[in-house]
Amino acid sequence: MLTPESNRLMDMSSREIRMPLDEVVAVLQDLNEFVVSLDRLGSRQASGTADEYTVGTFVADRDVARRLARARRVIGVALDAQLSEEDNAEIDALCDQGRFHGTDRATGPSTGRSG
């Protein structure tokens, strides 16, 4: 059964957001690096040649948290500039439904797209 939220999501699914190509390329480069590297690290963990320390070192050395926050900010700025406050509030609410490590679901995450 479709809820009002799912109806709005369907309406939003055909919309397009424009972003500067240089920012899109930078985000894609970071995401590609993370996906390939984490896949390789996962394979190494499965074969016993890497452990959690190795993954933690990668995350710290490659500044993954800051770079992912930048990617989120780039997308958030484009959304904020091109969508209504209501649409952005709905997207923020959907993002808050994610699975967050180290948070109690009862208290909810402390997130924000733009930060």
Rank of each mutant, 00 (worst) to 15 (best):
S14R: 07
S14H: 10
S14W: 03
S14K: 07
E16Q: 13
R18Y: 08
M19G: 04
L21E: 15
L21Q: 15
D22N: 15
V24Y: 08
A26P: 00
D30H: 12
N32V: 10
V35S: 15
S37T: 15
D39I: 06
D39Y: 14
L41S: 06
G42S: 14
R44Q: 15
Q45W: 05
Q45T: 10
S47P: 01
G48M: 02
G48A: 02
T49R: 09
T49N: 06
T49Q: 11
A50E: 08
D51C: 08
Y53Q: 13
T54C: 12
V55P: 09
G56L: 05
T57H: 12
V59S: 04
V59T: 10
D61Y: 00
R62Y: 05
A65R: 13
R66N: 08
R70N: 03
R73Y: 03
V74M: 00
V77G: 02
V77P: 01
D80C: 03
D80G: 06
A81I: 00
L83H: 02
L83I: 04
L83C: 03
S84E: 01
E85D: 15
E85C: 06
E85K: 09
E86Y: 04
E86R: 09
E86P: 00
A89W: 01
A93T: 05
D104F: 05
R105H: 07
R105Q: 05
